[in-house]
Nucleic acid binder design. Structure first.
Length: 699
RNA sequence: GGGCGAGUAGCUCAACUGGAUAGAGCACCGGCCUUCUAAGCCGGGGGCUGCGGGUUCAAAUCCCGCCUCGCCUACCA
């Protein structure tokens, strides 16, 4: 509603400026005034024009208001302060828009349709986006840092889909990297297991995990082994360490090459760990469409194809001088190149020994994402979700496989430490002439999750003296320093379960368990989403286990309260909204010329006056959804929606305490209050769903 | 050395991307449960937005210079 009216007002003002001053203003700035006293929408446009028109802003504002006349949906305009134009909505009209926006299946939400089709998309066609997130090295259990990545990515996917985009969700698996090599070294050389013993161990872990829980699973086993192996590399004499280092890289090369027993073990372990990651993420409602793996990027020779393109377009050049002599290198973004001078700072893509760097492989992979590579992955089914299949890359395809890649816009959810390599890939695309693709390549970057020193001590880690004074300490998979994702989820469920058991004595164990899980996941997802992306989260159990104040459960609780009202009132939110829609529709039909028909006139009366300002504010907030959705997508910032949901819940709680609905004596007002609750319920449930948070029946 | 990000209430964070009186949550103090669930509500204290200049009708936000902190910056992957 707000977005729709804001757009309408912007267009009206633009037309006025064109007509009266012959000025073409592209974007009329519109904002929400700090207080309802100033109306619901405002624009400072007169300030900008003051210099150009050589008039006082206040005078310009008055002229604009006079020329504007009546605009549908608005009750009036006024000039305030030094030259603001404040707009007051026609409250009955606005309320009707809010009620109708999505309660009727036949009614297309105009606001959302607009968000879903940014300029990048071909006319009338939805944008095809590709979001890549999670991408955990498959050599250890997922930890809280990975949770932030996956939750941010998954939420953003939900937002894009809500805006009408076609979205593929990918989770890139680096199954041939040094991290996987390290656990393979751990199994074969630290634990001195044979290949057969490793196979037996993986099978045993799977069995034990089924009965004892995920603490017995392979990813937990590898967590410790990886940390031990990392430490092991640094032990012993210099000669010993050098030998270990050689072992490490020999193992890595065997894995990269494939077709040998070491590679088979790596495949076995990485696949088993990957399955665990998918299970962990599924606990949070996170699913993937496709798992491209580095092994296929290598074996299907993506790089060889990309290399030709890179050479042909001159993005890569062969260095003949300096420290990078003998390498194929690329100029870094923003670097100043002087003719004749060797660029010592250039990024090496192909080493002098002929091997390609990670960035090189990444360029090839990203050409594939945009459909610019003449090769494709093979596809095999890998993991079954309740309502769909998750596919994995393979050399050979199974018949009837789907096809991925070829997107028009991509989002890579990767932490901010990777911004340099990401910038290199974008630079390469741009250099190759793929400017549209480079423009639609978004590094969805975010800051890390770290532990507070207190939390680290609490977990039994020894913390260095100088770290005790810091606000946070970076987690490290290599050191085994961090909080495992499944452990945290378990801990949250245990805490909510205790509370639900105490409150919901009338429900059976299965029901209580379900509610506890919904609340725990709600708490976790909201916790990860309430911070804006580039704020470091200093993790502490005290904060994460809190269920009061600005938390997921707070919002869920508001939902439960509203549901209780309808249950006790023996009606449903749907019925109340349906009634509102049909009433206003019939009124409009009988009096088509009247803008203030009886139904919306009555609603307007309940929304007017000093005593009802808080209720109007609630409706206004409820009508902001599409505006918030648009901002979330434009800024790649899911936190805005989290904030919106919280504020709506907060305003509702306020309303809830102030106005007792079921004991309201005036039947018309009671219906109106029920409609208010119904609208808030609908908007809260919708916002929570986009945040990946379920709305429990009770709590 | 260069690049990116951050510095806002005791603590953790917001501030619609330059707008009107800088807002929330924790924590602390004081009220509210025979009325739709107290995982809630109301009230209170708390701020030189790191420092110094500049740009303009308007700066937490943009520019310049400092000061702190974090990350990135290998022919490793």
């Amino acid at each position: 509603m707000v977005l729709e009216l804001e757009t309408k007002l912007g267009e009206a003002i633009r037309a006025t400026l064109k007509e009266n001053y012959d000025l073409a203003v592209e974007n009329v700035p519109l904002e929400t005034p700090p207080d309802l006293r100033f109306g619901e929408l405002a624009t400072p446009v007169a300030f900008e024009l003051a210099r150009k028109l050589r008039k006082a802003p206040r005078v310009i504002a008055q002229e604009i208001v006079a020329a504007l006349g009546a605009v549908e949906g608005f009750a009036g305009f006024e000039v305030a302060g030094a030259g603001y134009i404040n707009a007051r909505l026609d409250r009955g009209f606005a309320a009707r828009l809010v009620v109708e926006s999505e309660s009727h299946p036949s009614h297309k939400n105009k606001d959302v349709a607009r968000v879903g089709h940014p300029d990048s998309g071909p006319m009338g066609h939805p944008v095809h986006s590709l979001v890549e997130h999670t991408s955990i090295n498959p050599n250890k259990a997922a930890h809280i840092g990975h949770l932030r990545n996956a939750i941010l990515g998954d939420t953003f996917v939900r937002l894009l889909r809500a805006a009408g985009q076609k979205v593929d969700v990918q989770n890139y698996i680096d199954n041939t990297g040094v991290q996987v090599a390290d656990v393979v070294v751990g199994f074969l050389h630290v634990e001195r297991k044979s290949a057969a013993q490793v196979r037996a161990l993986v099978a045993e872990c799977e069995m034990r995990a089924a009965s004892e829980g995920h603490a017995a699973a392979i990813d937990y086993y590898c967590w410790d082994l990886y940390a031990r192996t990392s430490q092991w590399y640094g032990e012993g004499s210099e000669d010993k360490q050098a030998a270990k280092k050689k072992l490490r890289y020999d193992t890595l090369h065997l894995i990269e090459h494939g077709g040998n027993e070491t590679a088979e073990i790596a495949e076995l372990i990485s696949t088993a760990v990957l399955r665990r990651h998918l299970e962990t993420m599924l606990r949070l409602g996170i699913e993937y469409d496709f798992l491209p793996r580095e092994s296929e990027v290598l074996h299907l020779k993506f790089w060889e194809s990309a290399f030709e393109q890179l050479k042909k377009t001159g993005v890569l050049y062969f260095e003949t001088e300096g420290k990078n002599k003998g390498c194929w290198v690329m100029t870094r973004p923003g670097a100043e190149t002087r003719d004749g001078e060797t660029d010592e700072d250039a990024k090496v893509i192909v080493r002098s020994n002929g091997t390609v760097t990670y960035v090189g492989k990444d360029i090839a992979y990203h050409l594939w994402k945009f459909g610019l590579l003449d090769r494709d992955f093979g596809y095999q089914p890998f993991f079954r979700y309740p309502d769909r299949e998750c596919w994995i890359s393979a050399v050979e395809s199974r018949k009837d496989h789907p096809h991925f890649g070829g997107a028009t816009a991509i989002y890579n959810v990767i932490d901010s430490r990777q911004s340099d390599p990401q910038a290199n890939v974008i630079q390469a695309l741009r250099g190759m002439g793929h400017t549209a693709e480079a423009d639609h390549y978004t590094h969805f970057s975010y800051e890390m999750v770290a532990l507070t020193p207190r939390c680290a001590v609490e977990l039994g880690y020894t913390v260095a003296e100088e770290d005790l004074g810091r606000p946070y300490i970076e987690v490290s998979g290599r050191k085994g320093f961090g909080v495992k994702a499944d452990d945290l989820i378990d801990k949250l469920i245990a805490a909510t379960r205790a509370e639900v058991d105490a409150r919901q004595t009338g429900r059976d164990g299965a029901e209580r368990r379900k509610i506890a899980e919904q609340i725990a996941i709600g708490a976790l997802r909201y916790f990860m989403l309430k911070y804006t992306r580039n704020s470091v989260i200093a993790f502490d159990f005290k904060d994460a286990l809190g269920f009061e104040g600005e938390t997921g459960p707070y919002i869920q609780y508001a939902v439960v309260r509203i549901r209780n009202i309808f249950r006790k009132g023996e009606t449903t939110a749907e019925a109340v909204l349906e009634q509102q829609v049909s009433e206003s529709a019939s009124q409009r039909f009988s009096e088509p010329e009247s803008q203030h028909d009886a139904a919306s006139g009555a609603v307007a009366a309940f929304l007017s006056g000093q005593a009802n300002e808080d209720i109007w504010a609630l409706w206004l907030r409820a009508g902001r959804f599409s505006l918030v959705l648009e901002q979330c997508i434009a800024a790649s910032e899911p936190a805005y929606l989290a904030k919106h949901a919280f504020q709506l819940a907060q305003e509702f709680n306020n309303f809830y305490h102030k106005h007792h609905i079921l004991t309201e004596e005036d039947p018309r007002r009671k219906t109106f209050l029920l409609a208010t609750a119904a609208v808030v319920l609908r908007e809260l449930v919708k916002a929570l769903a986009l945040l990946g948070i379920e709305s429990p029946e009770a709590m």
